[in-house]
Design a protein around this nucleic acid. Structure first.
Lengths: 211, 211
DNA sequence: GTCTATATAGGGATAGAC
DNA sequence: GTCTATCCCTATATAGAC
């Protein structure tokens, strides 16, 4: 498995040079945020149990000692930080636009653009789906399901502001997210990214239809 | 993680008593099909890397030696057999009804009933989604994505017989399966099985709407 | 077929020097 | 902060007796 870059960096993240970069990983490691981004990519692709410290060391270019320096709690710590990062990123880029005081269409399109970026056009799996697999067997205590819950809730509230009843808004919000999550699975299973693109379009229709 | 029964047994599977049943697992093991059913449950819930031989031994009540007797190829062998089982079950219970010469509504309802049973009303994850996680890193050579591909193709053909164009039939078939797969993820993430039930209803509408 | 015992590798994690 | 070396546990898999 290669270690693709997430391209989820914020403008605020000024990369700094890291002298530790040495051997058999694709490119130089950088800031702590960059490290977290690579961890995020690993966990979303392989789940908690599917990622080894060796994988992480290779993907980041950091030795074991460095990793345990940044994450004293070990692998569980890393996973929790990754979930926290996802929560922050989701809130900043996907949910925040939904709370703005702009037309519904503008809000939805902003959300969908962020979603497209977040999942790399359907090429990157959902962290929640990947981390759900080991729930109950792993030492990760972060609330992964809460990411989906927050997303549904915020989207529901955004639709309610347009006059929909709470029940109908919740139904549409849920349906849209169900379609996105399902498209990620199916697109990867049959290796057809157009399925994800199509699903985003369907979600848009679901959310805007006589909004 | 408990070891729930799949309730996917065929009528043809006559359970036979197995003397090896001994210690700390929920109920007596039985035929080889019963063993595969338990493996299926383990892999769908935890993925390939998330299941250990110890887990399997406990869930089946079989010692390591017995497991390697039934599956000489070890864990990879077990996973491949499980994927093969899923393929056979899917074909027999989900796809076969779609090929029958009965009204479309009858075909779709038969498929949905089987799907409901297959996923235990949304409580059981999709094997494909779980096994996709380790693809490329594990020794499983079975084509897990092929399960989804076959499903889409058979459903598409079933819709085409009703006069839909191939393109539209494929779109609807894909959308229905996307909704089902997504509902499994979301339902488990937010722990609301009604989301899965609702998704089956939506799939039905998608597939039958002016079919 | 199943058991006990074991081989071998890889996992996560830590110690202590630098 | 990073390195080297190491500890300890678990994992898969096998051998050989019954």
């Amino acid at each position: 498995m290669p270690a693709p870059s997430s391209d989820l960096r914020d403008g605020t993240a000024r990369d700094r040079y890291c002298p530790a970069m040495t051997k058999d990983h694709p490119s130089a490691p950088t800031s702590k945020e960059e490290i977290v981004l690579r961890l995020f990519d690993l966990f979303r692709h392989a789940g908690y149990e599917g990622v080894s410290i060796g994988d992480i060391s290779q993907a980041t270019g950091l030795g074991r000692s460095s990793l345990y320096h940044y994450f004293p709690g070990g692998k569980a710590d890393m996973a929790n930080v990754v979930v926290g990062f996802a929560k922050v990123w989701l809130d900043a880029h996907v949910l925040a636009p939904l709370r703005r005081e702009v037309p519904l269409e503008t809000r939805i399109d902003a959300m969908l653009a962020a979603v497209h970026r977040f999942y790399r056009g359907g090429a990157a799996p959902c962290l929640v789906a990947s981390m759900l697999l080991s729930r109950g067997r792993d030492p990760v205590d972060a609330d992964v399901g809460g990411l989906i819950r927050d997303w549904i809730d915020t989207l529901t509230q955004s639709l309610e502001r347009e006059g929909s009843s709470k029940a109908e808004a919740a139904e549409r919000a849920t349906a849209a997210i169900v379609g996105i999550e399902g498209a990620l699975i199916v697109a990867q299973a049959v290796e057809r990214l157009d399925i994800f693109e199509k699903a985003l379009g369907e979600a848009r229709k679901t959310l805007l239809d006589r909004g």
